[in-house]
């Protein structure tokens, strides 16, 4: 198990009442597999992903990375060394070029980075489908699909085994969506990564190795 959630509870206080977004959620993920978490808007998908990526902490319960509590690893350290996060709205730095955006996490992580980081970044972008001429453009001069590819390259730049994505194709048309999903499949099946994608799209869920369904704060297997 590369990632495991145990009895996660996440609620907010509404007057006297506790409103649970996640209730006693437990789930585990393996390397080399492409997972999806399916749920309607407002069902708590982003909340779950923020807990798995240590951008937020649960009210109770633990997240284990390689059997170790991420709280013990340290949230910041876990984020910079162990996980790559992809957002629905890309979240690239607009004043930087594509390749500069990919270089940012490489300078933050403590993982080993080859000395010619820039070459590695160009190669990574090329592999994801961004050629060199586009890699040197400022990211706001790229299309949505291209921007999300840059974001995927950025998530991979630190050589992590765990990729978390929150509705990564939500802003893309169907053709682009499929290209991104193909990349995720390739990363899981050819490169042995654990890819977890949150989505409200049935088509994507059907392509995953395993899909979960989130409803009323409860996570279940989805067939």
């Amino acid at each position: 198990m590369i990632l495991e959630a145990k009895d996660l509870n996440y609620y907010y206080q509404d007057g006297e009442e506790r409103r649970y977004i996640l209730k006693d959620t437990s789930v585990s993920f393996e390397k080399g597999k492409f997972y999806t978490i399916l749920g309607q808007s407002g069902s708590g998908k982003t909340t779950l992903l923020s807990l798995l990526s240590a951008l937020d902490s649960p009210n109770s319960g633990t997240v284990l990375f390689n059997e170790e509590d991420i709280k013990k690893i340290g949230y910041e350290k876990y984020r910079r060394n162990n996980v790559g996060i992809i957002f629905q709205s890309y979240n690239l730095i607009p004043t930087f070029t594509a390749v500069e955006n990919v270089l940012v996490p490489m300078s933050i992580t403590e993982n080993e980075i080859p000395e010619d980081a820039k070459t590695v970044a160009y190669n990574l972008l090329d592999y994801i489908g961004i050629v060199k001429s586009k890699a040197d453009r400022f990211v706001n001069k790229l299309s949505g699909g291209e921007q999300q590819r840059v974001a995927v390259a950025r998530a991979l730049a630190t050589n992590v085994e765990l990729i978390l994505a929150d509705e990564p194709t939500g802003n893309l048309d169907e053709e682009m969506e499929q290209e991104i999903i193909d990349i995720f499949k390739k990363l899981a099946h050819e490169h042995g990564k654990c890819v977890i994608v949150v989505t409200h799209s049935n088509e994507i869920a059907l392509q995953s190795d395993q899909a979960f369904h989130l409803r009323k704060g409860v996570l279940s297997s989805y067939e």
Partner: peptide, 13 residues
């Protein structure tokens, strides 16, 4: 703040 949030999400101190 968006840019700064990105650095933090990437685990920057």
């Amino acid at each position: 703040k968006h840019e700064l949030g990105i650095y933090l999400s990437l685990g920057e101190r």
